[in-house]
């Protein structure tokens, strides 16, 4: 196992534009193994773009990415995955029409010759989900029949079972009841104790603070805030958000428009 608290992922001076819109200005970020980094920010602040870059889905216009201290170029999702970086997206990359175990093994199916080895996939999926404490009625059930929490848990389990060491969770608690959310937070804590490096994106700050060791705030394509999570942090963040809100409102009423350069939805 990778030594905990050694550096997993570091990005320096990452910038990304979409035509006239600057999504990311100058991003610097660092993540250790066994650490949960909460990445928060308003809608359109650039969170999703940043995640997509760190997972190889999009390429930055500028900046460098380091995995385990080595500079890397992430040109594809496959490449990022080979380095142990896996993302669980908020739109869930699960396929409703397929069973739980087929979803768990999608794109890395076990086979006998050219054929699927369903028995082995079924057994391994069941064992793995049991170990992780993820509870589903049966691994044979179609994913469309599961609750939001179960689906999220399976998506995370899939990432971990594919040997992900750096896990990016995009809004893992979106559209989830309190009880289900608590189960996912448990799961995140368990992964953390196993040394997985986790970035958790969310705009419910209270939930993020519940598991995060450190919090980064993304505003207008820049990290404006990087502090360890503590009991006063919530107030501090609330103040910053309120300031921004007031500034935006003032700007709007003064100019009649939101200040230019504000990234739209990324």
């Amino acid at each position: 196992m990778t030594a905990p608290s050694s550096e997993a992922l570091r990005v320096e001076h990452i910038a990304k534009r979409f035509g006239p819109v600057t999504a990311l200005r100058d991003i610097n970020m660092r993540l250790n193994y066994g650490e949960v980094l909460g990445l928060i920010g308003d809608n359109g602040a650039g969170k999703s773009t940043l995640i997509k870059i760190m997972t190889g889905f999009q390429q930055p216009d500028a900046g460098t990415i380091f995995v385990n201290g080595q500079e890397v170029k992430l040109n594809s999702v496959q490449q990022a995955r080979e380095l142990g970086i896996e993302t669980v997206y908020q739109d869930l990359a699960l396929i409703n029409e397929l069973s739980v175990y087929h979803n768990m093994f999608l794109k890395r199916e076990l086979r006998i010759g050219p054929f699927l080895n369903n028995a082995a996939m079924r057994r391994q999926a069941r064992e793995f989900l049991n170990q992780m404490g993820v509870n589903v009625p049966s691994v044979d059930v179609e994913v469309s029949k599961l609750s939001g929490g179960q689906r999220q848990a399976i998506a995370i389990a899939r990432a971990v079972s594919s040997n992900a060491k750096i896990l990016l969770l995009d809004e893992p608690l979106a559209a989830m009841g309190a009880k289900e959310g608590a189960q996912i937070l448990d799961l995140i804590n368990r992964l953390k104790s196993q040394g997985v490096a986790i970035i958790m994106i969310g705009h419910n700050y209270a939930q993020v603070l519940e598991v995060a060791d450190r919090v980064n705030l993304l505003q207008h394509g820049e990290i404006t805030f990087d502090k360890p999570a503590g009991k006063d942090l919530m107030d501090e963040i609330t103040d910053i958000i309120m300031q921004e809100y007031r500034a935006t409102k003032l700007g709007t009423s003064a100019n009649g428009s939101v200040k230019s350069g504000t990234p739209t939805s990324a």
Partner: peptide
């Protein structure tokens, strides 16, 4: 399996690679 995935959830399928 990947054919079903492609039609069932195109975005999801591409995110899986």
């Amino acid at each position: 399996l990947r054919t079903v995935a492609t039609g069932g959830n195109p975005l999801g399928a591409s995110e899986v690679g």
